Every structure is written in C-alpha cells, then in structure tokens.
Simulated assay, not measured.
Amino acid sequence: MKTTINILISALLLYGCGQKSENGSDTTASENKPKIEDYDPQRGQGKFDKVELPAKLDDAMAKNGKSVFDLKCSSCHKLTDEKLVGPGWKGVTTRRKPEWIMNFITNPDAMIDKDPELQSQLEICLVRMPNQSLSDDDARHILEFMRQNDGVK
C-alpha cells in the first residue's frame, strides 16, 4: 500500500512539473526558459534600450547616486578595482555601456542567469548580486556616480 501511494505521489509531482505548450504537447519548465542566444551582451536584459549621457557630469545626480551607493552598495562594492564581496567599481563605465549598467542594477537576476561574463564573475565572487529593488531614478543616479568615480567631470 505504501509503495502504491509513493508511486502515485511521484507521478503527480512529475505531471505537475510539465506544462502545455502552444501546440498542446507537454513541455518542461526548462524548455520554456528564454534562450541565451536571445541575450544582448551590449545592453543586457531589461527595459533600458538607449541611455543618453551628457558629456558633462550631472553633479546633483552623482551626489544622489553616492547616497544610494552608501546605503545599498558599499557593503559589497569598493570604488577601487579591488573586490570586496562583489567586484570593485573602478572603470565600470569604460567597460560597460550605460544601458547594460542600468539594466543590471534594476534586473540582476535575469542578467546573471544569461550573461556568460556575469556567470564567470559569480564563480569568483561566489555571491549573486541581490535585487535591491531600486527605482529607475536611483539606477540613473548610481550610473552618474559611477561616471564621477571614473573621472567624468
């Protein structure tokens, strides 16, 4: 009797993990995940397609970005190239496009799952960047603070 119940429970669990595709056939959840080929390594994944940056630094935005950094980022990131928990921020705005930075700040989970470079970084840092639930404005202010940190005046 116990064996029959165990088989029944196992069958229900396996059945529950599948989903119906558009054509009605059973698929697993992993088959429905977006493909890595769909990922754009230049902009990342998120709502920011194009971020226009002025040539001159916006000091007020950078000041707000520093406040956000102090509150949400400084426990894991240094402003140098030295790793703390996460990588240091020095030079990030010269290595990454603004769209990528803002998409990563606001959408880290999806990007870590798809970006091969972020996955390599995860192997070094051993800790996923948590989603800090930052607003678009916070993300833009952090980007401006990163630019200031990289010497934009």
Rank of each mutant, 00 (worst) to 15 (best):
M1W: 10
M1Y: 10
M1T: 10
K2N: 14
T3L: 12
T4S: 10
I5R: 12
I5A: 10
N6H: 06
N6Y: 12
I7R: 06
L8V: 12
L12E: 07
L13M: 14
L13S: 09
L14F: 15
Y15T: 13
G16F: 06
G16H: 04
G18H: 04
G18A: 09
K20T: 14
K20S: 15
K20A: 14
S21D: 15
E22Y: 10
S25N: 14
T27G: 07
T27P: 03
A29N: 02
A29C: 06
S30D: 09
E31L: 04
N32G: 12
K33A: 15
P34I: 12
P34R: 15
P34Y: 11
I36T: 14
I36H: 08
D38E: 13
D38A: 13
R43P: 00
R43G: 00
R43S: 05
G44Y: 01
Q45I: 05
G46R: 04
G46S: 09
K47C: 06
E52G: 10
L53R: 06
P54Q: 10
A55V: 07
D58C: 00
D58W: 05
A60S: 07
M61D: 06
A62I: 02
A62P: 03
K63R: 11
N64E: 12
N64K: 13
G65D: 10
G65F: 03
K66Q: 14
S67N: 12
S67L: 09
V68C: 09
V68D: 05
V68G: 04
F69Y: 15
D70Q: 11
C73Q: 01
C73A: 03
S74W: 03
S74V: 01
S74T: 04
H77K: 02
K78A: 13
K78D: 13
L79N: 07
L79E: 09
T80K: 08
T80Y: 03
T80V: 10
D81T: 12
E82R: 14
K83P: 02
K83D: 11
L84S: 11
L84V: 09
G86R: 07
P87Y: 11
G88E: 06
G91W: 00
T93Y: 01
R95N: 11
R95W: 08
K97G: 10
K97E: 06
E99V: 06
W100T: 00
I101E: 00
M102I: 08
N103R: 05
N103G: 01
N103K: 01
I105F: 00
T106N: 05
P108N: 06
D109I: 03
A110H: 04
M111I: 08
I112R: 07
I112L: 09
K114W: 01
K114F: 07
D115L: 03
E117A: 12
Q119T: 13
L122V: 04
E123V: 08
I124Q: 11
I124C: 03
C125I: 05
C125E: 14
L126H: 11
L126D: 11
V127P: 03
R128N: 05
R128H: 04
M129W: 03
P130I: 06
Q132H: 14
Q132E: 14
L134D: 01
S135I: 11
S135F: 09
S135M: 04
D137K: 15
D137E: 15
D138G: 12
A139S: 15
A139L: 09
R140G: 07
R140V: 01
H141P: 01
M146T: 01
Q148H: 08
V152C: 00
K153N: 07
K153W: 06
